[in-house]
C-alpha cells in the first residue's frame, strides 16, 4: 500500500519509505525525520537537490546513496538553482513532447541547511523565487554550520555558544539576533511559506503537501534540533522540539501569497523560554548571574514576536 491520507498516524504509516536507513547522520538527527516525512507524504515522483551540508554529506557517502528518488548535489549555494533548472527543462520538454512519461506527476524539491539558506545560498534562493519556478525549498534549520564543526550562521540565535562565537569570560556567545527568513521569503514573493517542526508531524505533513501542490515557489523553514551542536542527548530530539514549539521560540505558522498569515499551532500551555534554553548545552552559560539580562531579552523577544504574529493573522496584511 502507498500513502493514502495523513488523517492519522495509522493511515500515514502505510507509506513506503523512499529514504533508506544506514545513512550516516548522527543518531537522533532531526534532518532525517523531516526528509522522511516529505518523501512519505506524497506518491508523486520527486526531483530533489541538496545543498552541501549534513544531509548531503551523510546521505550520499560513496558508494552508497540513501535516496530512492532522483537526487542531485552540486554545490553549497545552488540547490535552489539546480532544481529550478531541472524544472525549467521539464517544462520545456513537456511542451516539445519529448518526455517519456508526460502524465506522471513530478514535484521539484530543494533541501538546504540553514547555512546554505540563510547565508551562502541566499541570493540564489531569492533569484529562484523571484523567477517564479514551481518548486519547494525546504530549509533544515539547525541554527549552526553543524557539518563543519559548529560555526555560527545568521540563523544562530542570540546567546548561543558556537565555535566561532564561543561563550566565555568576556562573551555570552553570539551577539546578533536570528534572521527572520520566513518573513523575508514571504516578502520575496513566495506563493506559500511555512515554519514547521518535526514533533508536530501532522502540521508538518500538511505544510509539505500544501507546498507540493501549490504552483509557484514555496519555502518551508523546518526546525531541526541538532543533538551534536545544541548539545543534548540523542534520545531527546522530539522533547527539545516540543519545548521549542510550546515556548514559542519556534512558532508554527504559514503565510499564503505573502499576506495571509495563519498560525497553525497554538500551544495549550505556553512554557517559559528558560525551559527551552536550559535543556541545551549551547545556552548553559546564560544561566550564570551576569547573563541574566540575556535571558530576559530572550523572553521579551519571543513574546513580542508572538504578539506580532497574532496581530498579523488578524490584520491579513
Amino acid at each position: 500500500m502507498a500513502i493514502t491520507s495523513i488523517k492519522n498516524l495509522k493511515e500515514f504509516s502505510t507509506a513506503n519509505d523512499r529514504f533508506e536507513g544506514a545513512h550516516l547522520l548522527c543518531p537522533g538527527c532531526a534532518h532525517s525525520m523531516i526528509v522522511r516525512e516529505l518523501l512519505n507524504c506524497t506518491n508523486d515522483n520527486l526531483v530533489i537537490a541538496s545543498a552541501t551540508g549534513c544531509l548531503e554529506v551523510c546521505t550520499a557517502v560513496y558508494p552508497y546513496t540513501s535516496w530512492d528518488t532522483s537526487w542531485i548535489h552540486i554545490g553549497f549555494e545552488n540547490s535552489a538553482t539546480a532544481v529550478t533548472g531541472a524544472e525549467a527543462m521539464y517544462k520545456a520538454r513537456k511542451r516539445k513532447g519529448t518526455l517519456k512519461n508526460p502524465d506522471a506527476p513530478v514535484k521539484f524539491v530543494a533541501f538546504g541547511g540553514d547555512g546554505a539558506t540563510y547565508d551562502i545560498g541566499f541570493q540564489w534562493l531569492s533569484g529562484a523565487v523571484e523567477r517564479g519556478h514551481d518548486f519547494t525549498y525546504i530549509c533544515l534549520d539547525n541554527e549552526v554550520y553543524a557539518n563543519t564543526g559548529g560555526q555560527r550562521s545568521s540563523s544562530t540565535p542570540i546567546g548561543a555558544s558556537s565555535t566561532t562565537a564561543p561563550a566565555g569570560r568576556v562573551s555570552y556567545g553570539k551577539k546578533e539576533n536570528k534572521k527572520d527568513i520566513v518573513s523575508i521569503m514571504a516578502a520575496n514573493g513566495a506563493s506559500y511559506v511555512a515554519q514547521v517542526a518535526p514533533n508536530k508531524w501532522k502540521n508538518m505533513a500538511q505544510a509539505f503537501q500544501k507546498a507540493l501542490s501549490t504552483e509557484g515557489p514555496c519555502f518551508i523553514n523546518a526546525m531541526s534540533a541538532c543533538t551534536t551542536e545544541w548539545k543534548f542527548d540523542p534520545k531527546d530530539t522530539i522533547n527539545i522540539s516540543d519545548l521549542a514549539t510550546d515556548s514559542l521560540v519556534f512558532p508554527l505558522y504559514e503565510i499564503v501569497d505573502g499576506h495571509e498569515l495563519n498560525i497553525t499551532y497554538r500551544p495549550k500551555n505556553i512554557i517559559p523560554v528558560k525551559d527551552y534554553l536550559a535543556a541545551q548545552g549551547r545556552f548553559r552559560h546564560l544561566f550564570k548571574p551576569e547573563n541574566a539580562h540575556i535571558l530576559e531579552e530572550w523572553q521579551k523577544r519571543v513574546d513580542a514576536n508572538w504578539e506580532r504574529l497574532q496581530r498579523r493573522e488578524e490584520a491579513r496584511v
Binding site: K10, E11, F19, R36
Partner: peptide
C-alpha cells in the same frame, strides 16, 4: 497499541510497519 509514533519519528527508518 500500534500508534505508530515510533515509526513517524524514527530518524533511521528502522521501525518496520506494515498494514498499520
Amino acid at each position: 497499541i500500534d500508534c505508530q509514533n515510533c515509526w513517524v519519528f524514527c530518524p533511521d527508518v528502522s521501525i518496520i510497519s506494515r498494514d498499520k
